[in-house]
Design a protein around this nucleic acid. Structure first.
Lengths: 199, 199
DNA sequence: ACCCTAGCTGACCGCTCGGTCAGCTCCTGC
DNA sequence: GCAGGAGCTGACCGAGCGGTCAGCTAGGGT
């Protein structure tokens, strides 16, 4: 057989997926290579055959998500200064979260403790880039909190709700997607208005 | 001297504070007793003299926050069905976050992996209690996501911004508090309306 | 002067961690 | 049919983990 049947998918992909799940559930430090190997049905040695180290496994697991978010951040400035483009941006960001919720969860919640790992540093740089650009000309406390709640809140909601369903990405997903876009848009819409007068 | 001067505060309190910070920065599994002891200026044995185990240290560090949130959840049903009371609730919740941001961060982001530890289980039970009551009669996908983004997003924003300033809880804190209350209220206000028609 | 306890510590324990290595078993190209 | 590499594994390593324990040192009560 050329590729392979459903019995045993690509071991590397399988390991990355299992590792990702455990890194989220137990934290990077808390998930051991032995646990990952057991959960994937391999030996610890086999994991280290496919990936040079635990850190390399993390990097490999995160890389696709990083490439994805980097693509979304292309032409970031123009995409957030124009109201219609900003809605497009939110749209793509939600799509990104739904596809890479686990990766986002790791970067957001464990990024600080994993500083020094190239992939993590790259991710945090991207996030800071986003924050800087988004805030350009709007550096009030409320704006900062608005962005933080919208993006971090959305990332959290997706990360904890995705593993509950895993497969079956049917109608539920459509509902979730639309609700996410609606709520995030609502939170971030006041960005083009005046400095937000408290009621 | 009856209590003690600023030179050496209560060792237990000091250890709990240091442990809390490291549990957030490095995760519970990733923060070793040795690191905690070093950071607090004690030996590992001394930490285990004050707290029977690493788990007991975590429990002791989280308990005040749990008592605080439990008090806020008193009469939860009446506080969220009435619009004015709901605003009071949000008000107190934000105060809680500003005081116990680190504890909230641990419970939200590491609660799953720490299941089995009594204090954590109690915390997760409280959160589920909140979710159940808040959703009563409003079980749409959007409502669920609204609540998740508002509360988790706020908790995240507070948890990462608090350690940056630590002391100096001056005017900045007032700004942050007001912004948090405004944004959360705005997100949760539609809760008393009809089942939320998409635009 | 005495003891006793609170506070703290270094030495040590069993265990698991991430990582190395020699060697096993297939499958493929020749 | 056999050489060779890809895939995988168990045995093993030093290091660090959480936790135990005997013992040191003050200081207060009597």
């Amino acid at each position: 057989m050329p590729v392979n049947a459903s019995s045993r998918p690509d071991p590397s992909e399988e390991l990355k997926a299992v590792a990702l799940r455990l890194f989220v559930e137990t934290s990077y430090a808390g998930a051991s290579l032995q646990q990952i190997a057991d959960a994937a049905g391999y030996s610890k040695s086999s994991v280290l055959y496919h990936f040079a180290s635990k850190e390399a496994l993390l990097e490999a697991a995160l890389t696709p998500a990083l490439n994805g978010i980097e693509a979304i951040f292309e032409n970031l400035i123009s995409r957030i200064t124009d109201d219609r483009l900003r809605l497009d941006f939110i749209d793509e960001f939600v799509d990104f979260l739904l596809e890479y919720g686990l990766e986002a969860h790791i970067i957001i919640n464990q990024g600080q403790s994993l500083a020094g790992i190239p992939a993590i540093d790259r991710a945090r740089q991207l996030i800071q880039h986003l924050g800087d650009k988004f805030m350009t000309g709007l550096p009030t406390t409320e704006q900062r909190i608005r962005l933080g709640i919208a993006l971090a809140g959305a990332a959290y909601v997706v990360a904890i709700s995705v593993p509950l369903q895993s497969a079956a990405v049917a109608e539920t997903d459509v509902d979730v997607r639309r609700a996410l876009v609606d709520v995030i848009s609502e939170i971030l819409i006041p960005f083009h208005m005046a400095p937000a007068v408290a009621s």
